[in-house]
Design a protein around this nucleic acid. Structure first.
Length: 494
RNA sequence: GGCCCGUUCGUCUAGCGGCCUAGGACGCUGCCCUCUCAAGGCAGAGACCACGGGUUCGAAUCCCGUACGGGCCGCCA
């Protein structure tokens, strides 16, 4: 008898290592993790590497890297540096298969007539599917090997055919279960099919290994993408055949690309690491991902650290799919960048500056101040280098449009000469003094402040937009500023 | 083709029978601030709640159809 003892939830993220960690996978991992964090439950990482052809070591590593970068720590599972943690290992399905973990259940099902050997070849199955398509029937396996006699089986074996093991699906009745997000779900058994449990290679298939492992690892909740809804009745029947109580299911809505189809490689950036390269903050990506298919009743957008797991609730999950919006993601990243202290910002920006070769060898304090100058403008860390590079070049790259618009003004040469003289002579080369000098100069020459400010900016940065002017000049230093002003004066006089 | 899931501003969403002349956020437009660009503040445009029937005194909210979209139907997961 099952007693409903209040127990700590056990949830898992179970990716297959056939590529990098993508956005959809990251969100599934996040929701599982949030559920565990909120309830004090356990978050398990299990690698579903039963596809001998497609699973790779690099993909396993990519999944580790992606999860670690996002800060999604798991309580049980493989340890990236080697080894495993947790009492239910191994956490790689291939290793579990090699250990014979699935075998007793195969034997049991076979002995009870709940599974059987199927000798159909891939070609035969393909032909069967094509034929079914032609006759507008569902392209499902028709169960032709269900009642093979011992002689027939022996004959196939004699031909050297390797059988697969299929699960014997009930012919009638219906499979019903509750889904935390979708409510009650019901499937007619006659529409289900005898899925393969064990491949000819001896490796288990997804639908089989998944059930065995979720049970053995004592999972209480299965939170996964709703592309698995159709698999669930199959798995449910397997639980029942083994006499096990199925876990609670929650199927998350899909993430769509801008064209309304499921987000995939052809939509461009779908790998978590690509977002890292672009300069997204993991906490911003996490926040954005949480809001794809989930929300609080007040539609809160930004969550401070720790708030997400506190407020997360499966009941806030959306049934309908959500379209991924990179524009909003970038906005959110900007919000997170603005939340950083100057020092934190530099720390985050450093890899991108180094990558671009900008600011190398510059005093760290100065670099910190320079980077912070435009903090409110950044949306992506990777765009920082090109916004600050002029600080570190011997002279700026002049934007032709800026030159045309500002330095070609008739008053520009006079202004710049005057300012070069003033800045060469000013006692304290600081923000306040520099602004005072500029305003004084404007008054003296009878110009508006802007007529002085704008040429100054273009002269030293080459562009019309940039950080607040006088602090920028202060950080550049007297020598460089005066030199550039003289040079620009000559340039526009010519 | 069958089965399953879904459908509120361009996008993410609030809403769970009367508080909705539908709220918030991104984006967009305008104004303010201002040394530029941003950021910030304010204002605005933007959804006949897919459509058609019911149920009800009353429906975005409940029921039934239709349409459209997505998913699955693999010795992939």
């Amino acid at each position: 008898m099952i007693t409903l003892v209040p127990m700590k939830p056990r949830v898992r993220f179970a990716p297959s290592p056939t590529g990098y960690l993508h956005i959809g996978g990251a969100r599934t991992a996040l929701f599982n993790r949030l559920l565990a964090l909120k309830t004090g439950g356990t978050f398990v990482l299990r690698i579903e590497d039963t596809d001998e052809l497609r699973s790779t070591e690099e993909s396993v590593q990519a999944i580790f890297d992606g999860l670690q970068w996002l800060g999604f720590n798991w309580d049980e599972g493989p340890i990236p540096s080697g080894g495993e943690k947790g009492p239910f290992g191994p956490y790689f399905q291939a290793a579990r298969a090699r250990k014979g973990i699935y075998q007793p259940y195969v034997d049991k099902l076979l002995a009870e007539g709940k599974a059987y050997k199927c000798y159909c070849t891939t070609e035969e199955l393909d032909a069967m599917r094509r034929q079914a398509q032609l006759e507008k029937r569902p392209p499902r396996y028709d169960g032709r090997c269900r009642h093979l006699t011992a002689e027939q089986q022996a004959a196939f074996e004699a031909q050297g055919r390797k059988p697969v093991l299929r699960f014997r699906m009930p012919d009638d009745g219906a499979t019903e279960f509750q889904d935390l997000i979708h409510g009650p779900l019901r499937f007619e058994n006659k529409l289900l099919y005898d899925f393969i449990m064990v491949k000819a290679s001896g490796y288990p298939t997804y639908n089989f290994a998944c059930v065995i492992d979720d049970h053995l690892m004592e999972m209480t909740h299965i939170v996964r993408g709703d592309d698995h809804i159709s698999n669930t009745p199959l798995q449910y029947q397997l639980y029942k055949a083994l006499g096990w109580e199925p876990p609670i299911f929650a199927h998350l809505s899909m993430i769509l690309g801008p064209d309304g189809t499921r987000l995939s490689k052809r939509h461009g950036h779908t790998g978590v690491q690509e977002y890292r390269k672009m300069g997204l903050l993991p906490e911003a990506l996490t926040n954005y991902l949480a809001l794809l298919g989930w929300s609080t009743t007040d539609s809160q957008q930004i969550f401070v650290p720790g708030e997400l797991e506190q407020k997360f609730d499966i009941s806030g999950c959306q049934k309908s799919p959500a379209t991924f919006d990179p524009v909003k993601l970038n906005w959110m990243n900007g919000e997170y960048i603005r939340l950083l202290s100057k020092e934190q910002l530099l720390e985050r920006a450093l890899p991108y500056l180094q990558e671009a070769g900008v600011g190398t060898g510059v005093d760290k304090d100065l670099l910190c101040k320079i980077v912070a100058l435009e903090q409110e403008k950044y949306k992506l860390l990777a765009e920082i280098p090109k916004l600050v590079d002029f600080f570190f070049l011997p002279e700026p790259v002049y934007d032709p449009k800026a030159v045309e618009k500002v330095l070609k003004k008739p008053e520009a040469p006079k202004v710049l000469e005057a300012m070069a003289r003033r800045y060469a002579a000013v006692k304290d080369f600081n923000e306040v003094e520099l602004e005072r000098e500029a305003r004084e100069c404007a008054k003296e020459l009878g110009f508006k402040a802007g007529q002085v400010f704008h040429p100054l900016r273009v002269s030293v940065s080459g562009r019309t937009e940039g950080p607040t002017l006088f602090r920028m000049l202060e950080y550049m230093g007297r020598d460089k500023v005066v030199k550039l002003l003289q040079k620009a004066a000559a340039l526009c006089a010519a």
